[in-house]
């Protein structure tokens, strides 16, 4: 479980995160939604410690991130997996080397065990026969799946995804969403996903946080969001004709 208490983040004079408090449970797919520029990416990067926070506390199963020394933070990070918006695959390495990168760094596995783990992770994201290809040779959806395979290679306890289906066609986007939810349940991971894709909300949203102008404007379950009266949420969620019709029907 990840607990966030009243976190604030400033860049110069601009306050980007304004006192967000929430928690993310194990085995649940949590979605952070909001307009572009609302502070979702800063929130996610603050959660993993890529951005230091100016106020508040973040707890990983009762371990406070801000009070950890460098070695403790490193140890915590080996329990994390992250899928970046632009995939962040290492260009100079092939797909298999990308997937086993963290294993090479931190595990005592033999070469055969690492290969087996890479094959397992790649098969889990429905990718076969791409081990020796370079990231540049893959499509956007395939790269995203490799990024997920790399993120789960070390059996993480916490999985973070920043816009995992941005730039993908609707069919591939749904595949990625479902894959993330399956992995969350299968491995009992605490998963936090940043998205502004309403399809994701409907497909996999078990716990949703709506961020507006750097503050938490709403929090609830996937079903609740379709029936909420919160104006900020309804303006965002039902901005498309399709979702307005879904709401009317439900």
């Amino acid at each position: 479980m990840i607990e966030v208490r009243d976190i604030q983040k400033k860049f110069g004079d601009t306050t980007v995160l304004k006192g967000i408090t929430t928690s993310f449970r194990q085995g649940v797919t949590s979605l952070i939604i909001g307009e572009s520029g609302a502070g979702k990416t800063v929130f996610l990067k603050s959660l993993v410690g890529l951005h230091g926070i100016d106020q508040g506390e973040i707890f990983y199963d009762d371990r406070q991130l801000g009070k950890m020394n460098e070695d403790e933070q490193k140890a915590l990070r080996t329990e994390m997996g992250m899928v970046f918006q632009g995939n962040a695959l290492f260009d100079s390495l092939n797909i298999e080397e990308n997937v086993i990168f963290a294993l090479n760094m931190f595990s005592e596995m033999s070469a055969a065990e690492k290969k087996e783990r890479a094959d397992f992770c790649l098969e889990r994201v429905n990718l076969k026969g791409v081990n020796n290809r370079k990231p540049a040779e893959l499509s956007g959806g395939m790269k995203k799946r490799v990024a997920i395979a790399r993120a789960i290679a070390l059996n993480p306890k916490y999985l973070f995804c920043d816009e995992p289906n941005s730039g993908l066609d609707p069919r591939t986007a749904i595949l990625i969403d479902n894959l993330l939810q399956e992995i969350t349940h299968e491995f009992n991971i605490t998963t936090v996903i940043n998205t502004h894709d309403m399809n994701s909300v409907v497909e996999i949203g078990e716990h949703i946080i709506f961020i507006k102008d750097g503050a938490k404007a709403w929090e609830g379950g996937g079903e609740e969001i379709l029936h909420t009266d919160n104006k900020a949420v309804t303006d965002f969620v039902f901005s498309s004709e399709l979702f307005r019709k879904i709401r009317e029907k439900s």
Binding site: K45, V48, R77, M80, F84, G86, A88, A102, M105, L154
Partner: peptide, 18 residues
């Protein structure tokens, strides 16, 4: 620089690599 703008350096940091 390319690694920085494509978040590869962030990816290393999140993995626990210096």
């Amino acid at each position: 620089g390319s690694m920085r703008v494509s978040e590869q350096i962030d990816a290393l940091e999140v993995m626990g690599v210096n």
